[in-house]
Design a protein around this nucleic acid. Structure first.
Lengths: 122, 122
DNA sequence: CGGTATCCAATGCGATACTG
DNA sequence: CAGTATCGCATTGGATACCG
């Protein structure tokens, strides 16, 4: 799925971004990690609704795509920390804008739709 | 799919954005429409690889989400134009940033990986 | 604590054929 | 030209159980 990035033509590089960020929990993970490094369990609790399997898979994909670093501490009990790579951090602006937009959209969708032709946000 | 936006908790509004923008062709469509209004066939040719069915579906979803306007001209041969609503245009910055990021990422992934924090993908 | 393995449901998405 | 209908495969994601 992510192995044929080289074949994606120049005129749709947004798709490249979506290939990588399109997973259900990926943006939420990145947003969490923007604040600070998190342990697996912290992310688990923070995302509410994600399963272990899915969180693991999404984290592994982000790691494979070079956006997230996985650090294993061989102690008892085990401890694994996730943080952003430089590439991951390069998404900060986008992630925050998306978050902001989602909030705006939600708020807008909840209104009575009397003023929805005119947007009122910077 | 998009009907339960109200139940998405506050702490992950990025997910709201992804619910709406997550489709395979949606960002590419929005990027095209940022430039100007396009006819169905124009989009079809511009996206290279999309099927009529998928393009139709993605456009209808964008329309349902209030990001795209569909204008039908009852003439022969038929003509349908798609353009952005204000809500759609409010995504301009994000779409352009994503496009830019995808380009940067692609270029980075193609380099010899001498300076990459994350792993290279061949 | 932080995973894997296995099974299963939903749906995203593509191919093809047909239509006003 | 701009769709719709039908089919079917591949991927995504969830539930549950077990493991180092």
């Amino acid at each position: 799925m992510r192995s044929d990035l080289d074949e994606i033509p120049e005129h749709c590089t947004v798709e490249v971004a979506m290939e990588i960020l399109g997973g259900r929990w990926k943006l939420a993970i990145l947003r969490k990690l923007l604040d600070r490094t998190h342990r697996f369990g912290e992310l688990m609790r923070a995302m509410h609704g994600v399963t272990q399997r899915m969180l693991t898979r999404q984290l592994r994909e982000l790691e494979a795509d070079g956006l997230v670093t996985r650090t294993v501490y061989r102690e008892v009990p085990p401890k694994v920390e996730y943080s952003l790579t430089e590439a991951g951090r390069s998404l900060e602006k986008i992630v925050l804008l998306l978050d902001e937009w989602g909030e705006w959209y939600l708020d807008r969708a909840r209104r009575p739709a009397h003023d929805q032709t005119g947007k009122s946000r910077g």
